[in-house]
Design a protein around this nucleic acid. Structure first.
Lengths: 212, 212
DNA sequence: CGAGCGGTTGACTCTAGTCAACAACGGTGG
DNA sequence: CCACCGTTGTTGACTAGAGTCAACCGCTCG
């Protein structure tokens, strides 16, 4: 169930539910996801689970490992994952300064995390799910993984629940509501967003700069 | 209402409700809090507010500014604040590597933020408030600002609510409950924790390493 | 063919939110 | 010195959004 990383091998594969990293393990490398989705989470002793980060193609996993101590949360593959292995102390630290793609990606991750604090603390179920689907679409679009108004959406409703802090049942009802309002079309692990502006409004997100 | 920072002056003062940084402003310096409390927050268009970070004495404000673009959230003083001004591109970047106090503090901040994702996503009102009071006490203790089982607690119930994603009314009821259970004594902006272990359990936090 | 997972729906419960009134406190200005 | 006023804290009655429990469907994969 645990990944066997060979330092001489720059690529690794993982199956769904396979760990990329276990809690309190010393990371040997930082992964860069080439294909597939993964997530970081914490599980409480009574079973409640919260997903705290989602890793999509192109993402570093995890950039924070370059900063300090051991990871405090496990990371698990959600789909089949193909990843490259980078050294844990990226040369960018001393070389390219803080403006390198690597450090900017850490900045982005912190930014997303902060946005989720607002969503989990203050938003309704519909706003939460809208935030998630919107973020997925826009991140995938930046990586060229969208097709018109559509993109892949392999998450189960259970996983959406663990991401949005809701129960699977309520996620289901919320998705129904969004469908009837024409905010999203979601079926067969495929997402279509008819009106991005409407979804952004439903998510109560900050207005998005066009040039960004 | 806005701070006047002179680059030749290494110290600045702020009054309660005064901004250390406004949204989308270009930071000229990174503050290090010498005294007092501040917070970062986001406010939604309908008034809902979520505090996303708390800055206590010793904290950098904000370490993330060394990484990238403009801050997307305002920072405001909660009490009187005295702070030092550090350059935005800390020499530590190229010099001391990623193990410097500065980068470790960024790591800590991300860690705390991740813990709050779990709390806001999955925990009950009592667990949320317990998490907050516990974190405050332990951060202040690390800075030598606790006195036995006690520490300062200048936050209003309104601010606790904006931190924990609750309403002020419910924060009040929750504090009452915690008082009757003997978990905390809180009065006159002063917090006493009779049994740290009990509070940790009530907060449903990960068990804390003794040596940490 | 059967088991198990993911999705759907209904009925009911309960935690937290809302609205409203009032008390306690602190600072300000007459 | 004290009356006034805004802020903070407290309490009660009621509401609503999300959780719980349970049943059932459809599909995929051994």
């Amino acid at each position: 169930m645990l990944s066997q990383v060979e330092s001489s091998e720059p690529h690794v594969h993982f199956r769904p539910h396979q760990f990329l990293m276990r809690e309190d393990e010393e990371p040997a490398v930082i992964f860069q996801i080439d294909e597939g989705w993964a997530c970081r989470y914490r599980q409480l002793s009574d079973g409640r689970r919260q997903i705290t980060a989602l890793y999509l193609p192109g993402d570093y996993c995890d950039p924070q490992w370059a900063l300090g101590r051991k990871p405090s949360q496990p990371i698990v593959a959600l789909t089949n994952v193909r990843a490259s292995c980078l050294p844990c102390r990226p040369p960018t630290t001393s070389a390219g300064g803080t403006q390198s793609a690597f450090w900017l990606s850490l900045n982005d991750m912190i930014e997303r995390q902060t946005n989720w604090l607002v969503t989990l603390g203050r938003k309704t179920a519909l706003e939460r799910v809208a935030h998630l689907l919107l973020e997925l679409f826009e991140r995938l679009r930046r990586s060229g993984l969208t097709y018109g108004q559509q993109c892949a959406m392999p998450l189960t409703q259970m996983e959406i629940a663990d991401m949005t802090g809701l129960t699977p049942v309520h996620v289901n009802r919320t998705l129904q509501l969004m469908r009837t309002r024409g905010l999203v079309e979601l079926q067969a692990k495929w997402l279509r967003i008819p009106d991005l502006g409407a979804l952004r409004q439903a998510a109560a997100m900050r207005a998005q700069g066009v040039a960004a």
